[in-house]
C-alpha cells in the first residue's frame, strides 16, 4: 500500500485517497467557444507517460481536499505533493532518477 503525503495532513495510507486523474488540465474559461475537436481534446485526451506524471489526488477519507502529486508510473514513487493552483514543480535530474529507481 502506497504512502501518500497529503500537503495538509501529512503521510497517510493509500486507502484514504482517491486518484483524480491527470493534473494541470484547466477547464476552458468559455467552453462554448471551443471547437468540437478542442473540447474532445480537453474531455478525453490524457497523457500516459512511462515516468513522471502530475496527477490529482483527493484525501477522500481525511480532509477531503484535492492536491497534486508527481509520481513515477514505473515505480509508484512520489517525488512530491503540492497544493492545488501551484505550478508543476521543476524536478532536478537526481530526484527524477531516484524516483525511477
Amino acid at each position: 500500500m502506497l504512502l501518500i503525503r497529503c500537503p495538509y495532513c501529512g503521510d497517510r495510507a493509500e486507502i484514504e485517497f482517491a486518484n483524480g486523474g491527470e493534473a494541470h488540465i484547466a477547464r476552458p474559461a468559455d467552453p462554448m467557444t471551443q471547437t468540437d475537436e478542442e473540447w474532445a481534446q480537453y474531455l478525453y485526451m490524457r497523457d500516459n507517460p512511462k515516468g513522471l506524471i502530475a496527477e490529482r489526488w483527493r484525501h477522500a477519507h481525511g480532509c477531503n481536499r484535492f492536491f497534486n502529486a508527481l509520481r513515477d508510473t514505473r515505480t509508484d514513487r512520489f517525488v512530491t505533493t503540492y497544493e492545488m493552483g501551484q505550478p508543476r514543480p521543476e524536478i532536478d535530474a537526481a530526484a527524477a532518477a531516484e524516483a525511477a529507481r
Binding site: A26, R56, R58, N64, F66, M84
Partner: peptide, 9 residues
C-alpha cells in the same frame, strides 16, 4: 468539491 476546489476556488 472537485469543481469548487480545482476550477472555481
Amino acid at each position: 468539491e472537485d469543481y469548487l476546489q480545482t476550477e472555481w476556488p
